[in-house]
Simulated assay, not measured.
Amino acid sequence: MNTYRRTSSRENKPSVAHPSPHTMSARNINPQKVSLLKTIRSLINCLVNIKDETGQFLMTLEDGRVIDTKGWNDWEWTHGIGLYGLLKFHEITGDEEALRIALSWFKDRFEIGTTKNVNTMSPLLTAAYLHEAKEANYLAHLDSWAEWVMYDMPRTEEGGLQHITYLVDNYQQLWDDTLMMSVLPLAKIGLVLDRAEYVEEAKRQFMLHIKYLADPSTGLWFHGWTFDGRHHFGRALWGRGNCWITVSIPDFVELLKLPPSDGLRLFLVSTLKAQIDALVRLQDLDTGLWHTILDDPTSYLEASATAGFAYGILKSLRLRLIPKEERYVTAAKKAIDGVLKNISETGELQQVSFGTPVFDTKEEYKKIPLTSMPYGQSLALLALTEYLRTFL
């Protein structure tokens, strides 16, 4: 039905020129939203086209395999986070290209397979969502990987998930990365496959990691803990390690639909709020970024951690896990601005530190090289996609 009524010639009224639908839609366009979508798509384009031109970031295994941690066509935690970013963008916008890229990755990687460890578990989080949405049938893969985490993954004292990687077993070690890489996937698979024991184990892992990695004096998190000697290595309050917590706690609370009065939710949210309060105090006000060692202003400013913090703070505000106070809103906006200013014209998030093991000294964290990485692209994608909700 035509909503633009033409004035009758029989009516003694002056003619009025009505704007065309094209003109009206142009006037109603939000330029900030359009710019944000353009930036997000450039991030995705860069994500799937990053290449290690020098071979500097290849990981050679004892069995002769070479894992490309930088390029898109391999299987590591870097790709798991990338897939999760694509998933979130598709969920919010319905973007079909993001979905196509993710489905194509799983088709190619599942045909080849890889070694199971904490980090290679990370893509199974997105796989569980896609299986649930009936975009693909990943039942056998979900079952196999989750059963391995539950019953075969090496454990520390008290039953913690030992942070085993491609290269090292990290005997008796808990890392803050594990909650994002293995525990969230386990919980989601438990919900999708209706296996309550997976969900309960995921809850226990969150509590155990908080027990040993959250620093009660600052609210921030240590990168690692070992039961073999019972210490926190260099006691580093590492930026990106902390950002996995800011990302995973809101996602975990949302995933399990924990009600406001639930005891575990209250425990998780108070832990999260303590961390965010500390982050607000430590944010670099000139750039909106955080330092790679959060409490050490002599360490370089790092953008991937900042993107993770922006996502977690924005989502915590949206879910009402933290009050909508000016200090939180301001910190999130500054972080988004900082991320945007570090995205190049080609869609590369700059100021991203390479993959980082637990070190015995804080100085070693400062020497980690900066390079474009899939998880940098994806953490920026997560942050900007969450920010996009502002304009929906």
Rank of each mutant, 00 (worst) to 15 (best):
A307H: 07
L279R: 07
Q283R: 05
L285P: 01
L272N: 10
A278D: 09
A274H: 12
A303I: 05
A303R: 04
G288K: 01
T292H: 12
L282Y: 04
L294M: 07
I276G: 03
D286K: 14
S270E: 15
K273Q: 15
S270I: 08
V280G: 06
H291T: 03
D296L: 06
A274W: 02
L285M: 13
L301G: 10
L285Q: 15
S270R: 15
Y300C: 03
D284N: 15
V280F: 06
T287W: 07
P297N: 12
I293S: 01
T287Y: 08
T271Q: 13
G288M: 03
D284A: 12
E302I: 08
A303H: 06
L285C: 04
T298W: 05
S270L: 10
L289M: 13
A274M: 13
T287E: 09
S304A: 14
L289R: 00
L285N: 13
G288P: 05
V280E: 03
A305T: 06
W290H: 01
D277T: 10
A305E: 04
L289F: 00
K273P: 07
D277G: 08
A278C: 13
A307N: 09
P297E: 11
A278Q: 10
T287C: 10
T298Q: 14
D295V: 03
T271L: 10
S270T: 15
L301N: 08
D295A: 02
W290N: 00
A278N: 11
E302D: 12
L279D: 08
E302Y: 09
V280P: 11
D277N: 15
L301S: 09
V280K: 02
I276L: 15
T287K: 09
D286A: 13
L294S: 01
K273Y: 03
T287V: 08
V280M: 04
L272V: 10
L285V: 13
H291A: 07
P297S: 12
I293H: 02
R281A: 14
A274N: 14
Q283E: 05
D295C: 05
I276H: 03
L301T: 11
T306C: 06
I276A: 05
L282R: 04
K273F: 05
L289H: 00
S299M: 10
A274T: 07
D286R: 13
A307E: 06
H291M: 03
A303P: 09
K273V: 14
R281P: 00
T306M: 03
I276W: 06
D277E: 14
L301P: 03
T271F: 05
T271A: 15
I293W: 02
T306G: 05
D284P: 08
L289D: 00
V280R: 02
